[in-house]
């Protein structure tokens, strides 16, 4: 692996990332939907259910619920974005252009790198908008700069893992329609976790599931970092889940793309 090879891999990856970002500008409907949906969910849960749910958390009403639900909505944003990643990977792979790339002397991994990094940039923008809306309607996190930094770092890791999984799902799908279905199940996971209500309020079987699925420790970690709640072992679990999902997604993608 010579220095030229490495510099070509980097240059090819940069080219593919630029290509993906251009796609997002050309086809903004997907990006708008990506940002729009979690914002709608945020407003729905805060203004429609928030008063009652907030009181259920032990008083505090709507304002209390806004603080509780925002980390859950942020993670929901990442799942929505993963869906769009899977779809665009499936669409792209079906196009002749990827066959062309495969017959060219370029770094093959750069094609997937373009998708992963491009998606992560769009997810970062979506999350920033969601947090902006939450702040505008009264979300008041008490995180210190270091905790914000940790939250950003953790989200990057989580999004990274989810994106690789989405890339694999997109490659595995027979067509773009198929690609849009698989991550839909992921969309439900924040609901069957601590995203919207504490798991303690759920029936025993559901609670067991909620506590052992990846989104609950992820949400608890984020909530702890932003709101100062106790994180406990959630951080380790969330990081372990992320690393595991990233590894599976990466290896699966590589296997499918060879």
């Amino acid at each position: 692996m010579g220095a030229v090879r490495v510099s070509h891999t980097l240059a090819d990856s940069a080219t593919m990332i630029r290509r993906r970002l251009k796609h997002m500008l050309r086809y903004p409907a997907m990006t708008v939907q990506l940002i729009g949906m979690p914002v709608v969910f945020l407003l729905l849960f805060v203004y429609v259910f928030g008063g009652t749910l907030g009181n259920g958390l032990g008083g505090g009403g709507r304002g209390r619920y806004l603080d509780y639900v925002t980390p859950g909505i942020i993670l929901m944003t990442t799942v929505g974005a993963a869906t769009s990643t899977a779809i665009s990977v499936a669409m792209d792979t079906a196009e002749g252009i990827v066959a062309r790339f495969r017959t060219m002397d370029i770094s093959r991994s750069s094609i997937l790198t373009g998708h992963v990094v491009g998606s992560m940039i769009s997810i970062a923008i979506s999350i920033a908008v969601v947090i902006g809306v939450a702040l505008a309607i009264g979300f008041r996190p008490n995180a210190e700069p270091l905790e914000w930094l940790a939250a950003a770092g953790f989200l990057t890791l989580f999004v990274f893992s989810l994106t690789w999984l989405a890339v694999a799902l997109g490659l595995a799908a027979k067509n773009p329609e198929g690609a849009s279905n698989a991550p839909l199940l992921l969309m439900l996971l924040p609901f069957f976790g601590s995203g919207f209500v504490p798991t303690g309020s759920m029936p025993a079987a559901l609670r067991w599931f909620a506590e052992y699925q990846p989104f609950t420790p992820a949400i608890e970690t984020l909530r702890g970092l932003l709101m100062g709640a106790a994180i406990g072992t959630s951080a380790y679990q969330a990081v372990a889940w992320s690393a595991g999902i990233a590894l599976v997604g990466f290896l699966w993608s590589m296997k499918l793309f060879r």
Binding site: E95, G96, A99
Partner: peptide, 10 residues
């Protein structure tokens, strides 16, 4: 190739 290998969004 037989099927157009251009990037349609560009």
């Amino acid at each position: 190739g037989q099927y157009s290998a251009v990037d349609k969004l560009l």
